[in-house]
Nucleic acid binder design. Structure first.
Lengths: 251, 251
DNA sequence: CGCCTAGTTGACCAGGTTCAACAACGGTGG
DNA sequence: CCACCGTTGTTGAACCTGGTCAACTAGGCG
């Protein structure tokens, strides 16, 4: 059933029909999470993984003084708590931004799968690595870019990621986040986000109303953001090139 | 020979004598890299992995305007370019901070190993995940903490990481980074790092001279940094608890 | 002794924060 | 259908953390 998962894993390694089938038919439960509610919380020790099949979410940490830093956004196909497969507990939380549909698969089941199909293990591992690449870019964004560029960069990233999974149309996509969320993601104050966003709109780069973003001037938006999408690139079948024996049985 | 690698992987999964031996006897070359020279550069497509056996390094990206953001620091036992095992090219660079001894193992060889010993694959995967946890904490650091807390946090992190591999003595450890490096890692200006560092020293939290840091008041340093080391924790044998069949053959 | 790198200092400036109030919008109930 | 309410977005003004520019000092090394 988790077709979105198959599509995600295929980005990273070529899968045989058997492998696709195994993933699609993995027994799972479905859960619905209300907006603003945690899907997993810091300190949790999940024994299953939660995959977002519909809706948006964010990874975040809360500081001692109650302030929040959003670490990244999750979109359909993303796994909330893959970390807990190999580490005891979550070091951060994941909250739904709008109503989320979640598919749940047990660690036990996942271990069975990756033990039997090593190529699938590599695909999951690749997913972890791509997340790490997104984090690295976020570090650059927060460390060295202006407010204006930070917000522009965040928009570029969401845009490309949603485009890859077919969730954009004519430069328009859904982005159900408030300016407060945007502030917590970019390390800025709410007030400054508001003013900067107005400037970005006034400059004719985007529109952003009712959780709908439209990119009006892709070139200029990417330019002011210093956005270079290579870090988001999947590794289409790298394994194929470097290690043919991982390709046995691929249809 | 790469004993440091065995020790690192053992943090994440229990290894049989055979597995330890396989890792230790993996054919490899050794290379020395001069201070300030890249071990791998953005855009490179390495066909081998580079493991730091001695010395310090940093991951970084360069912006269009030439400014640099340091993403994380590498210490003995860390792998510079594990990413390139599964992705085509490096999305960032790694540079030596002081003279570095590097062990080089081919992708081919590594694939052979992890195909035959799935538990080792999980251990490498865990290493990727722990790096991701370090990145997440860096995002919080850059996004939401003051200059003073950022620097304190960075020092806490290096301190704990070096302690784990036995490279501290009585709260003192080597940290071969300049104030310019510190600025590029914390997203601050060189001048402000200098002044903030003076304040941290004046407050009696640390001394920092000639690349040697001494933590004078661990409690207070961790408090001002809001440092919570759980994100650094290895997952001692999580797999053992959740999936016994991965423990076959462990001595 | 001279050079180069790393560290330090002062003065001025600006990007971004904080506080406080208000406006717009969508949803709800009477 | 409208009044009410909570959430989200917007604005102004004062303030401050941290940036920039520019010069100078301290060490290490040949």
């Amino acid at each position: 059933m988790p077709v979105s998962l198959v599509r995600k894993l295929e980005q990273f390694a070529p899968l045989s029909d058997t492998e696709k089938q195994i993933v699609q038919e993995a027994p799972m439960r479905v859960r619905h999470v209300e907006p603003q509610h945690d899907i997993v919380s810091e300190g949790d020790r999940p024994v299953e993984i939660s995959l977002i099949t519909d809706g948006f979410a964010c990874r975040y940490k809360i500081l001692d003084d109650g302030r929040r830093q959003i670490i990244s956004f999750l979109i359909p196909g993303d796994i909330c708590d893959l970390r807990a497969l190999l580490f005891r507990q979550m070091d951060h939380s994941v909250a739904a931004l709008n109503g989320c549909q979640i598919a749940i698969i047990s660690h036990q089941r996942l271990f069975d799968i990756i033990e039997k199909y090593p190529r699938l293990a590599l695909a999951f591992w690749s997913d972890s690595m791509r997340n790490a690449a997104i984090y690295r870019e976020a570090i650059v964004n927060l460390g060295r870019r202006s407010a204006y560029a930070r917000i522009a960069h965040l928009l570029c990233e969401q845009w490309i990621r949603l485009e890859v999974i077919g969730m954009t149309r004519d430069g328009t996509f859904e982005l159900p986040i408030t300016q407060t969320d945007l502030a917590d993601a970019t390390g800025l104050s709410l007030v400054h986000v508001n003013r900067t966003l107005q400037k970005i709109r006034a400059d004719g780069l985007i529109t952003f109303r009712h959780n709908l973003v439209t990119v009006l001037d892709p070139q200029r938006l990417q330019a002011v953001a210093q956005f270079n999408p290579t870090y988001l690139a999947a590794a289409p079948h790298t394994v194929a090139a470097t290690h043919p024996e991982f390709l046995r049985d691929v249809g």
